[in-house]
Amino acid sequence: MTRAIALHLAVLALLFAAQFILPPYHHTNIARIMVLAVFAMGYNIAFGYTGLLSLGHALFFATGLYATGLGIELWGLPAAPALVLGLLAGGAIAAATGVLALRTGGVSFMIVTLMFAQAGYLTILYFGSYTRGDEGFVIARAARSLGPLDLSSDTPRYFAALILFALGLLANLALVRSRLGRAMVAMRENEERSRMLGYNPFKVKLTALVISGLYAGAAGAAYGVLFGYVGASFAAIQYSIMPLLYVLLGGAGTTLGPFLGALLMFYLIDLSSGVTTAHLFVVGAALLVLVLFAPKGILGWLRDRGAKWLP
């Protein structure tokens, strides 16, 4: 138990220390990866722990992104309330999706979430006069600050990303160890039995999905403020598959898997671009290899081979 906590704190300490030694390019990359890892952590709460394979998480991410971006640009909100708005919007859209989609399961759940996300993407295009459609808009640099922290400069941005990541990670750890966390895993393992044990599967799954949406919304909101751009491409299907890929690679149902997956996948694509221009092949092959040879991902593989304490 304490080993697990020590490991998480060590990862956070390492990330804190990393900012002093990383060259500038990787410095910003890690900041991006931490925010994307929060998105993937949210995905993992639904997919990895609760067994809900969604193909529509881009909707939650983009809702957070747009709620924050439009809040700042249209209504002139300061960054702090806009970020909170993004977080809540992500949770709210997840709740609305969940109430309907959770009436289904398995393959139908995937397709329903996919369809909702597609409708969301088209909605962004439809309200082009506010959202600037596919082209998107820039969040003015002056608005991208939290009190004295100018989030458009490197050190505060890294710091903000790290704080968000740390909060997400520790909350994830606490969730997994809570009664609710165990109920979520029970849903994944055997929904019927957990029903007989007195759980309400719909309620547990909906709660998990809303938490997942809060994570995705927070990540989208932070991505907008930290990197300054809001656009419809973030609502497209690729951004629903991205967190799935990260989670599968790092290890579904592990707290650190999403971060590990985001880190490895980011650099796999980045480094492969020096060798080949076939990024799509790299992504596709990664998915196939994972699903064929390591369906539990890297940390899942480690957990099966001795490190049973990995949360």
Partner: peptide, 21 residues
């Protein structure tokens, strides 16, 4: 079912790349 979906997503990326190349 779920593994198949992930695998066919992977296949679709590979086919797209093959066509592009």
């Amino acid at each position: 079912p779920e593994a198949t979906i992930v695998a066919t997503i992977g296949l679709s990326y590979i086919f797209q790349q093959a066509a592009l190349t």
